[in-house]
Design a protein around this nucleic acid. Structure first.
Lengths: 146, 146
DNA sequence: GTGTATGCAAATTATTTGCAATCGA
DNA sequence: TCGATTGCAAATAATTTGCATACAC
């Protein structure tokens, strides 16, 4: 319940204000340490206090992304998830059938990143890329083919 | 101007109706052979005829995707582009600075796809993946660091 | 003729914004 | 104190839907 999160100290050091709303949002994110949608974060915080507004959640998430403390990842269908930046880089595998998200090692992208840089001069931002497909479970269940 | 597109024949064979609207949308897509947004397709068609409605464009694009004749790719910011399926699979490199889209060879993804399948049992759908980053031009212009 | 496809306008969903009130440093 | 931050409600943006009409086959 105290300010045991470095993220809060960091923000304070940078001269930003720590409001109860920001504190609750950060707390919810750090506690879950997962891929959360804005709506999910709102629900989590709402759960512990009425003093929160969805607009504030969006503004705060946007703010934290700008501060580089959290990441925003496009899930591939136009929706987004947020993850704590210190959570490390991950490759999100989104199942188009059951919507479940698996986290794969970021290392898988190393060679791709290198190739894109060499062949196209393109500096890919892959910190939190999401790839759509069929997870192991649904793959077995759905089709035998492929 | 009155070209015969295989796509139209295919649809007819499958028992679907060919309306002037569908014809115009298909024509616009085949003629451009590019990554187009729904809005862009609407503008192109609107340009040659008033007899088109944005809702129809969305419905038709959705229909063509379901029929497997075109692809829809998430650009990474919640917006989408459509490409003709016979255009082949491509890796879209979206510059977060200048918004320009470069198409990279699909082969770059082969090993990634293989690895994901082996290590996670995940069958990735990468036909039209989009990756965000900095293009060669903006990379040079923007920062020396990288 | 029959049922699919379209137009139009209203609904939806997710997110953003204006502005007055509030509150942290 | 005083400007950064919030709440609220209204504004957006992109896409979808209901329903009556139009038209492809």
């Amino acid at each position: 319940m105290k300010q045991k999160y470095r993220m809060i100290t960091t923000l304070r050091q940078r001269g930003h204000r720590i409001t109860p709303q920001r504190e609750m949002i950060i707390q919810a994110m750090m506690h879950q340490r997962r891929h959360l949608t804005a709506e999910a974060i709102f629900a989590l915080v709402r759960d512990q206090s009425e003093a929160i507004n969805l607009a504030t959640v969006y503004r705060t998430l946007d703010f934290l992304v700008r501060e580089g403390l959290i990441n925003r990842t496009d899930l591939g269908d136009g929706s987004f998830i947020y993850t704590t930046a210190d959570h490390g880089s991950h490759l999100h595998l989104v199942c188009s059938n059951c919507q479940q998200i698996t986290e794969a090692s970021y290392e898988m992208l190393a060679s791709l990143q290198h190739e894109l840089s060499c062949q196209y001069g393109f500096q890919a931002h892959l910190h939190h890329l999401a790839i759509t497909g069929l997870c192991e479970h649904c793959r077995e269940e759905q089709g035998v083919s492929s």
